[in-house]
Simulated scan of single mutants.
Amino acid sequence: MKVKEIIVVEGRDDTSKIRQTVEADTIETNGSAVNDRVIKQIRHAQAKRGVIIFTDPDYPGDRIRHIVDQAVPGCKHAFLPRDAARAKHSVGKSLGIEHASPEAIKEALHGVYDITEREASDISRNDLISAGLIGDSKAAARRDHLGELLQIGHTNGKQLLKRLTMFQITKDQFDKAMYQVIQEENKDG
Protein backbone atom coordinates (compact mmCIF):
# COMPACT_ATOMS: atom_id res chain seq x y z
CA MET A 1 0.00 0.00 0.00
CA LYS A 2 1.37 3.38 -1.02
CA VAL A 3 0.24 6.55 0.77
CA LYS A 4 0.23 9.72 -1.36
CA GLU A 5 0.09 12.16 1.57
CA ILE A 6 2.92 12.77 4.00
CA ILE A 7 2.17 11.35 7.44
CA VAL A 8 2.91 13.46 10.53
CA VAL A 9 4.04 11.27 13.44
CA GLU A 10 5.63 11.88 16.81
CA GLY A 11 9.02 10.19 16.44
CA ARG A 12 11.50 7.76 14.85
CA ASP A 13 9.83 4.62 16.19
CA ASP A 14 6.51 5.66 14.63
CA THR A 15 8.22 6.33 11.29
CA SER A 16 9.91 2.95 11.42
CA LYS A 17 6.65 1.12 12.17
CA ILE A 18 4.74 2.93 9.43
CA ARG A 19 7.46 2.23 6.87
CA GLN A 20 7.39 -1.47 7.81
CA THR A 21 3.67 -1.44 7.05
CA VAL A 22 3.12 0.91 4.09
CA GLU A 23 5.13 2.88 1.58
CA ALA A 24 4.99 6.41 2.96
CA ASP A 25 6.97 9.52 3.80
CA THR A 26 6.76 10.98 7.30
CA ILE A 27 7.50 14.15 9.19
CA GLU A 28 8.40 13.67 12.85
CA THR A 29 7.35 16.28 15.40
CA ASN A 30 9.87 14.94 17.94
CA GLY A 31 7.42 15.21 20.80
CA SER A 32 4.77 17.69 21.83
CA ALA A 33 6.98 20.79 21.61
CA VAL A 34 6.26 21.26 17.91
CA ASN A 35 8.63 24.00 16.72
CA ASP A 36 8.26 26.53 13.91
CA ARG A 37 10.66 24.63 11.63
CA VAL A 38 8.46 21.50 11.80
CA ILE A 39 5.27 23.54 11.24
CA LYS A 40 6.89 25.17 8.19
CA GLN A 41 7.83 21.73 6.86
CA ILE A 42 4.26 20.44 7.43
CA ARG A 43 2.77 23.49 5.66
CA HIS A 44 5.01 22.81 2.66
CA ALA A 45 4.03 19.13 2.67
CA GLN A 46 0.34 20.05 2.85
CA ALA A 47 0.70 22.37 -0.16
CA LYS A 48 2.60 19.78 -2.22
CA ARG A 49 1.08 16.39 -1.38
CA GLY A 50 -1.35 16.70 1.51
CA VAL A 51 -0.82 15.66 5.11
CA ILE A 52 -2.26 12.97 7.37
CA ILE A 53 -1.84 13.59 11.10
CA PHE A 54 -1.34 10.21 12.79
CA THR A 55 -0.37 10.62 16.43
CA ASP A 56 -0.56 8.36 19.47
CA PRO A 57 -4.00 7.97 21.10
CA ASP A 58 -3.02 9.76 24.30
CA TYR A 59 -2.89 13.29 25.72
CA PRO A 60 0.47 14.26 24.13
CA GLY A 61 -0.70 12.85 20.78
CA ASP A 62 -3.96 14.81 20.98
CA ARG A 63 -2.00 17.95 21.88
CA ILE A 64 0.30 17.54 18.85
CA ARG A 65 -2.71 16.85 16.60
CA HIS A 66 -4.38 20.06 17.84
CA ILE A 67 -1.23 22.19 17.39
CA VAL A 68 -0.65 20.96 13.84
CA ASP A 69 -4.35 21.16 12.88
CA GLN A 70 -4.54 24.77 14.08
CA ALA A 71 -1.29 25.80 12.35
CA VAL A 72 -1.91 23.88 9.10
CA PRO A 73 -5.60 23.83 8.14
CA GLY A 74 -6.90 21.13 5.82
CA CYS A 75 -4.92 18.17 7.13
CA LYS A 76 -6.46 14.72 7.13
CA HIS A 77 -6.61 12.69 10.34
CA ALA A 78 -6.02 9.02 11.08
CA PHE A 79 -6.82 7.50 14.47
CA LEU A 80 -5.58 4.33 16.11
CA PRO A 81 -7.79 2.78 18.81
CA ARG A 82 -6.09 2.73 22.23
CA ASP A 83 -6.30 -1.07 22.46
CA ALA A 84 -4.51 -1.42 19.12
CA ALA A 85 -1.73 0.92 20.32
CA ARG A 86 -0.84 -0.88 23.54
CA ALA A 87 2.45 -2.74 23.90
CA LYS A 88 1.71 -6.45 24.19
CA HIS A 89 4.77 -7.52 26.18
CA SER A 90 5.63 -4.40 28.10
CA VAL A 91 5.39 -3.50 31.74
CA GLY A 92 3.64 -0.18 32.30
CA LYS A 93 1.36 1.81 30.11
CA SER A 94 3.26 1.93 26.80
CA LEU A 95 0.88 3.32 24.24
CA GLY A 96 1.79 4.34 20.71
CA ILE A 97 1.77 3.75 16.99
CA GLU A 98 5.08 1.90 17.31
CA HIS A 99 3.24 -0.88 19.24
CA ALA A 100 0.42 -1.35 16.72
CA SER A 101 0.11 -4.26 14.34
CA PRO A 102 0.50 -3.65 10.61
CA GLU A 103 -3.19 -4.50 10.19
CA ALA A 104 -4.25 -1.86 12.74
CA ILE A 105 -2.08 0.77 11.04
CA LYS A 106 -3.50 -0.06 7.60
CA GLU A 107 -7.05 0.08 8.99
CA ALA A 108 -6.40 3.49 10.60
CA LEU A 109 -4.99 4.85 7.35
CA HIS A 110 -7.96 3.49 5.37
CA GLY A 111 -10.27 5.35 7.77
CA VAL A 112 -8.66 8.75 7.12
CA TYR A 113 -10.92 11.75 7.58
CA ASP A 114 -10.79 14.85 5.42
CA ILE A 115 -12.12 17.67 7.58
CA THR A 116 -11.48 20.71 5.43
CA GLU A 117 -15.11 21.88 5.65
CA ARG A 118 -16.47 21.95 9.17
CA GLU A 119 -20.15 22.40 9.69
CA ALA A 120 -22.21 22.52 12.84
CA SER A 121 -23.25 19.08 14.01
CA ASP A 122 -26.89 18.16 14.51
CA ILE A 123 -25.84 16.19 17.62
CA SER A 124 -26.35 18.02 20.91
CA ARG A 125 -24.88 17.73 24.38
CA ASN A 126 -28.28 16.40 25.49
CA ASP A 127 -27.92 13.59 22.93
CA LEU A 128 -24.60 12.65 24.57
CA ILE A 129 -26.14 12.68 28.04
CA SER A 130 -29.16 10.64 26.86
CA ALA A 131 -26.82 8.09 25.28
CA GLY A 132 -24.92 7.70 28.54
CA LEU A 133 -21.72 9.17 27.10
CA ILE A 134 -21.48 11.86 29.79
CA GLY A 135 -22.26 11.50 33.48
CA ASP A 136 -22.86 7.75 33.46
CA SER A 137 -20.84 5.03 35.17
CA LYS A 138 -20.25 3.40 31.76
CA ALA A 139 -19.60 6.69 29.92
CA ALA A 140 -15.83 6.29 29.41
CA ALA A 141 -16.16 2.75 28.02
CA ARG A 142 -19.02 3.84 25.75
CA ARG A 143 -17.03 6.83 24.44
CA ASP A 144 -14.05 4.57 23.71
CA HIS A 145 -16.24 2.08 21.84
CA LEU A 146 -18.03 4.86 19.94
CA GLY A 147 -14.68 6.44 19.04
CA GLU A 148 -13.49 3.14 17.60
CA LEU A 149 -16.68 2.56 15.60
CA LEU A 150 -16.68 6.07 14.14
CA GLN A 151 -12.87 6.16 13.85
CA ILE A 152 -12.62 9.50 15.65
CA GLY A 153 -10.23 8.42 18.38
CA HIS A 154 -10.39 8.42 22.18
CA THR A 155 -12.14 11.38 23.80
CA ASN A 156 -13.19 12.58 27.21
CA GLY A 157 -16.66 13.98 27.85
CA LYS A 158 -15.69 17.56 26.97
CA GLN A 159 -13.96 16.59 23.71
CA LEU A 160 -16.61 14.26 22.30
CA LEU A 161 -19.08 16.80 20.88
CA LYS A 162 -16.21 18.81 19.38
CA ARG A 163 -14.77 15.67 17.73
CA LEU A 164 -18.18 14.60 16.39
CA THR A 165 -18.55 18.06 14.86
CA MET A 166 -14.97 18.12 13.57
CA PHE A 167 -15.51 14.89 11.66
CA GLN A 168 -19.01 15.84 10.49
CA ILE A 169 -20.63 12.81 12.08
CA THR A 170 -24.34 12.98 11.31
CA LYS A 171 -27.08 12.25 13.83
CA ASP A 172 -27.94 9.13 11.83
CA GLN A 173 -24.31 7.86 11.94
CA PHE A 174 -24.19 8.65 15.65
CA ASP A 175 -27.48 6.85 16.35
CA LYS A 176 -26.42 3.75 14.40
CA ALA A 177 -23.06 3.58 16.17
CA MET A 178 -24.68 4.09 19.59
CA TYR A 179 -27.17 1.31 18.82
CA GLN A 180 -24.21 -0.99 18.14
CA VAL A 181 -22.44 0.15 21.33
CA ILE A 182 -25.52 -0.61 23.45
CA GLN A 183 -26.18 -3.94 21.69
CA GLU A 184 -22.61 -5.11 22.32
CA GLU A 185 -22.71 -3.79 25.89
CA ASN A 186 -25.91 -5.78 26.57
CA LYS A 187 -24.43 -8.88 24.95
CA ASP A 188 -21.29 -8.66 27.11
CA GLY A 189 -23.05 -7.56 30.29
Score class of each variant (00 low, 15 high):
residue 100 A to S: 09
residue 179 Y to G: 12
residue 143 R to Y: 08
residue 18 I to T: 02
residue 138 K to A: 10
residue 183 Q to S: 12
residue 91 V to K: 15
residue 65 R to D: 07
residue 23 E to C: 08
residue 35 N to M: 06
residue 84 A to S: 15
residue 13 D to Q: 14
residue 111 G to E: 12
residue 74 G to D: 08
residue 187 K to P: 05
residue 112 V to I: 15
residue 119 E to R: 11
residue 112 V to K: 05
residue 144 D to F: 05
residue 158 K to V: 06
residue 162 K to P: 00
residue 109 L to E: 02
residue 105 I to H: 03
residue 49 R to Y: 13
residue 90 S to C: 11
residue 72 V to H: 03
residue 92 G to N: 06
residue 59 Y to K: 12
residue 109 L to C: 04
residue 128 L to C: 09
residue 180 Q to H: 07
residue 142 R to K: 10
residue 83 D to H: 13
residue 107 E to H: 11
residue 72 V to M: 07
residue 156 N to T: 07
residue 148 E to H: 07
residue 104 A to G: 11
residue 34 V to D: 02
residue 152 I to H: 04
residue 103 E to I: 13
residue 97 I to A: 02
residue 182 I to L: 13
residue 64 I to L: 05
residue 84 A to M: 07
residue 104 A to W: 00
residue 86 R to G: 09
residue 12 R to E: 12
residue 13 D to P: 00
residue 156 N to L: 09
residue 133 L to S: 01
residue 165 T to Y: 09
residue 158 K to G: 05
residue 86 R to N: 12
residue 26 T to A: 09
residue 150 L to T: 07
residue 7 I to C: 01
residue 3 V to R: 00
residue 119 E to V: 14
residue 163 R to H: 09
residue 177 A to Q: 04
residue 23 E to Q: 13
residue 84 A to Y: 00
residue 25 D to F: 06
residue 150 L to C: 09
residue 76 K to W: 05
residue 182 I to K: 05
residue 28 E to H: 00
residue 98 E to R: 10
residue 158 K to H: 12
residue 94 S to R: 12
residue 155 T to K: 08
residue 145 H to G: 01
residue 21 T to A: 10
residue 111 G to A: 13
residue 13 D to N: 15
residue 134 I to V: 15
residue 176 K to A: 13
residue 52 I to T: 02
residue 180 Q to A: 03
residue 49 R to W: 12
residue 90 S to G: 13
residue 168 Q to G: 10
residue 62 D to M: 11
residue 160 L to R: 02
residue 56 D to Y: 00
residue 173 Q to T: 04
residue 44 H to A: 14
residue 106 K to W: 01
residue 166 M to S: 14
residue 102 P to M: 09
residue 187 K to A: 14
residue 138 K to R: 15
residue 119 E to H: 14
residue 101 S to K: 05
residue 134 I to C: 08
residue 183 Q to P: 05
residue 158 K to I: 08
residue 154 H to R: 13
residue 120 A to N: 10
residue 176 K to D: 13
residue 29 T to P: 02
residue 146 L to P: 04
residue 121 S to R: 02
residue 10 E to Y: 02
residue 172 D to N: 15
residue 75 C to K: 03
residue 88 K to W: 10
residue 41 Q to F: 03
residue 122 D to E: 11
residue 23 E to A: 13
residue 15 T to C: 08
residue 116 T to M: 07
residue 39 I to C: 08
residue 117 E to F: 10
residue 41 Q to N: 13
